[in-house]
Amino acid sequence: MSLRTGADDVVGQPGDAAPDGAATSTESLVSWTPRAFRIANVCGAAAAAALAAAILIASQDFAFRVRDLPGPAFFPVVIGVGLLGLSLAWLVLSIAGRIPLDDEVEAPPDRSAAIRAIASLGVVAASAFALQPLGYPLTTAIAVTVLALLARARLRAAIPAGVGFAVLSFLLVTTALGVQLPTGVLRPLLVGLL
């Protein structure tokens, strides 16, 4: 979805510091072609139909009725059948070109942005696995710094943001809210401090 501001906008690059008196907002770069949007919708509908089929197949492991009452498979089957029917309706509408495409539709990803988005998701996934061994402060400091760099922040802004966020959020959660967070490799140091 494109985001417009006023007529007197100043356009910068991602990660640019906003000039004096300016505020950050975002604006889309590309837009769908009708054919690409139709293909994307066909793929989406096919994926939904595949999900419905998977639900129906997996439901066969459970009883449909138990003593004349709906069993564990009853609801999944109802949902699976409904999802399959509606997915097929979506598929037909997509193939027939009856899915509206206008300015309100979110633009498709461009290549460079998609790479940065995938890398950012990789950082989130890595932080899930690193949280226990490395501990919250270290994992978060690295993750936030890398995320900022992926979003094209300058290193001199990204490092203070990452370290500052990790330290402040760790202190706030553990001391003010009284919730324990993993300390990992920094345990000897943090136990002494807290």
Binding site: M1, L3, T5, G6, D8, D9, V10, V11, G12, Q13, P14, G15, D16, A18, P19, G21, A22, A23, T24, S25, T26, E27, S28, L29, E106, A107, P109, D110, A113, A114, R116, A117, S120, L121, L150, A151
Partner: peptide
């Protein structure tokens, strides 16, 4: 947030 990543950062002048 991911969608924001692929948009050009626009600095709207604050009134």
């Amino acid at each position: 947030m991911l969608i924001g990543l692929e948009h050009r950062a626009t600095s709207g002048r604050l009134t």
